[in-house]
């Protein structure tokens, strides 16, 4: 596929919504361009919560949602960089 048809992958992050969050948000993935000031996992979550509606409900402070960056569990201050895959995970229930 011609690369000119796509956003430059280095300028966006790919968001992945899993399980309950995918159902709630109505999407499995989304490519977003980070505004300036959104540089950490916690800032990204807070920025998405500002979308309102189900976003502010599911991502409200205190809701148990973990962030994984490039398949590693992130802490609040873990940096998010263009090109990263950032997943939002509800509490896990395997086993």
């Amino acid at each position: 596929m011609p690369s000119t048809m796509r956003d430059a992958p280095t300028e966006t992050v790919t968001l992945v919504y899993l399980a309950r969050l995918r159902d709630a948000f109505g999407a499995a993935t989304e490519d977003v361009r980070l505004p300036s000031g959104v540089t950490t996992a916690a800032e990204l979550r807070a920025w998405l919560a500002q979308r309102g509606g189900v976003w502010s409900v599911e991502l409200a402070p205190g809701r148990a949602v973990r962030v994984a960056i490039n398949h590693d569990m992130a802490q609040a201050d873990t940096p998010v960089r263009p090109g990263d895959e950032v997943a939002l995970l509800p509490p896990v229930t395997g086993g």
Binding site: L18, A19, V92, T93, G94
Partner: peptide
Amino acid sequence: YLKTRAPFWKKEMTPEGARWVEA
């Protein structure tokens, strides 16, 4: 550790409908 750290999720079918299992 698998039950609390590995990214798996269960969705159950019950008489009340499908529901995501709570941790």
